[in-house]
Design a protein around this nucleic acid. Sequence first.
DNA 1: TTAATCCGCACTAAATTAGTGCCATATTCT
DNA 2: AGAATATGGCACTAATTTAGTGCGGATTAA
Lengths: 166, 166
Amino acid sequence: MLRFSRKADYGILLVADIAHSMDESPKGVSAASLAKKYSLSKSFTANILKDLSRGGILFSTRGKGGGYFLSKAPDEISLHDVVDVLDGGVKMTHCTPSGSFTSAEHDADADSGDCCEISETCPVRSPLQRVHRGIQHYLESQTFENFYDGSLGKDPFQVREALEIV
Amino acid sequence: MLRFSRKADYGILLVADIAHSMDESPKGVSAASLAKKYSLSKSFTANILKDLSRGGILFSTRGKGGGYFLSKAPDEISLHDVVDVLDGGVKMTHCTPSGSFTSAEHDADADSGDCCEISETCPVRSPLQRVHRGIQHYLESQTFENFYDGSLGKDPFQVREALEIV
DNA sequence: TTAATCCGCACTAAATTAGTGCCATATTCT
DNA sequence: AGAATATGGCACTAATTTAGTGCGGATTAA
């Protein structure tokens, strides 16, 4: 099944929540409070937040009163960023070279050649590359501005219009 | 990592090849010949073709001279169809209801409610739904017309333009 | 000093993906 | 009829990835 992992799912939720919280008050949000708020286990929540932090999407302060903050403005953080950090990137086909612009390290097989026996002559390599980039760009276009609460998209017309982009 | 399974990867290749072959001559394409052509194991290839056949994307005739054919015109078959059959559909978040328009059977958890503890009040449910549909529609828009050989997309301008769609 | 926090790592269990193989059935050709 | 060429259905195993837990250490504020 083509889908985000649970980690990415929850990661998106957490980032959206923090973005929203920072709107209201500039205080850090703790892992424990988020876990409680969304009925998630503390370990799992903490893990995801740590990954997001290491990935540069969040930053944190320790100690009492500490917690997590967005490291950029909500409209500068995209779903692609989150998926990149939490799911190890978007790479729609096994042939997709890993370079480009992802935060993941270079794979050994990066040089777009030896992903399969026939890569040189593969008749769908190029079209699939196009599809990969299409999805990647789409995910990059979806930022955390207005992502919380479904405040965007309540109006059926806006929904349709948003869908037609694609 | 967000990606198609190998099955889907190869399925796309196989469908593209058959589409192309039917262009040249209206004969069936055998699993064995495809396996050989693309250096795949016969079992694996056969398996994928069988799935595609059961999924209604291909049809087949048995016996000598038999093989697989497209059951629709190339421009009526999309990547979404293939992914649906081979990867069990597109369902970007764990909350995504399974209904819609997929060939997969209804899941037990379909009724868009009990995917997690907080589904009712989840602040990112609706935006994520939008993202799901965005990707689904994108995949539906990518058909097998001109998918073979990268004949489309060799021209840099066309590539850029294709990417800008998204 | 104590309690709240994040940090880093290591680990296990569950689920999914990947891939193989066998035997049955259908069709064609001789 | 019989041999050769094909797909169909099913069951199975191995590998990989995802999911999730847990602990002990470091940092900070009150």
